[in-house]
């Protein structure tokens, strides 16, 4: 009698151990797959031009000494700092506009209910599903009429169409999950709508606000189509387009600088994630699943 549970327990433990080994093996393969391109970009950016051009040595490691010359060149002798500044301005302004529009609308849609508010909430969700590639041509005309073609203000105008719907949507979810008792308590405490929003809703839904901010930041930082379509002058360019178009000068041996530029341009969102990943993931998963 006693032998049966003992073998049962060991086989259970053995099962678990095998499951664990399989899981780690699986994760190991995936991590290599996901990380080798950025690793290779980093390695390239640290090599001398001579080593990059040399075909015999192992491309995956730096054999000929690490150099920061690509980064130096980028920061001192190219338009890269200009791109960085433009991107920062565009992103900051877009994030600010997005958060104001989204938070106001989400508060209204989550709590105040008016005629047509349900339709508008659905509209927000549908707008979120509209990709940038659907409307870039008519928006090109609109940007042109407004005289914003070839300036980064065109991006400030059109980026909110990509950021606001999702941010509103997840803020509706966060605001909606605040217990109604809390507004009622604030109402009895004497708060008006603005005070309710600023002193109760925003602080309580801060994780959602952070998630929405990161989303808006990422979208504004990473978009490629709009700047490629609307901006031609180097002085108005943002990082994505600037790096892809101006750093490639037909020079075969410029790979080091290109990789350095791509990595530097990607650094701000990556750093932001490193610190705030949990907020963003929570916001994203709740936004996509909450109805």
């Amino acid at each position: 009698m006693t032998a049966v549970p003992v073998t049962g327990a060991t086989s259970l433990r053995a099962n678990r151990r095998w499951a664990l080994i399989a899981a780690y093996a699986c994760l190991g393969i995936f991590v290599v797959f996901f990380l080798f391109p950025p690793y290779y970009m980093l390695v390239t950016s640290l090599k001398t031009n001579a080593e990059i051009a040399e075909l015999a040595s192992n491309p995956w490691i730096v054999t000929d000494g690490v150099t920061f010359s690509h980064y130096e060149h980028l920061l001192t002798e190219s338009s890269f700092p200009r791109f960085f500044l433009n991107t920062t301005i565009v992103t900051v302004v877009v994030v600010a506009i997005t958060m104001v529009i989204s938070v106001l609308a989400a508060y209204s849609l989550a709590r105040l209910r008016f005629w047509g508010s349900g339709v508008l909430a659905t509209g927000v969700f549908l707008t979120y599903l509209v990709p940038d590639t659907l409307l870039f041509i008519p928006l090109f005309k609109i940007v042109g009429w407004l005289g914003l073609l070839d300036t980064y203000w065109s991006l400030i105008l059109v980026y909110p169409t990509l950021t606001v719907p999702f941010c509103t949507w997840i803020m509706i979810g966060y605001f909606g999950s605040i217990p109604r008792e809390l507004d009622e308590a604030a109402l009895i405490d004497g708060a008006n709508h603005l005070q309710m929003l600023l002193k109760v809703f925003i602080p309580v839904a801060l994780p959602g606000l952070i998630a929405a901010t990161i989303f808006a930041f990422t979208v504004a930082w990473a978009n490629f189509l709009y700047p490629l379509a609307y901006i031609y002058s180097e002085s108005e360019m943002v990082l994505t387009v600037g790096t892809v178009t101006t750093l490639i000068k037909g020079d075969v041996f410029h790979w080091g600088g290109l990789m350095a530029g791509a990595l530097l341009a990607a650094a701000p969102p990556v750093i932001l994630y490193a610190f705030l990943m949990d907020y963003y993931i929570a916001g994203l998963t709740s936004g996509a699943t909450k109805g």
């Binding site: 217990p179 008792e181 809390l182 009622e184 308590a185 009895i188 004497g190």
Partner: peptide, 15 residues
């Protein structure tokens, strides 16, 4: 707010 009342809620509703 102008009724001069105070309320204690079921789930406390603390901020």
């Amino acid at each position: 707010k102008d009724r001069n009342i105070a309320m204690v809620f079921q789930n406390y509703a603390l901020y």
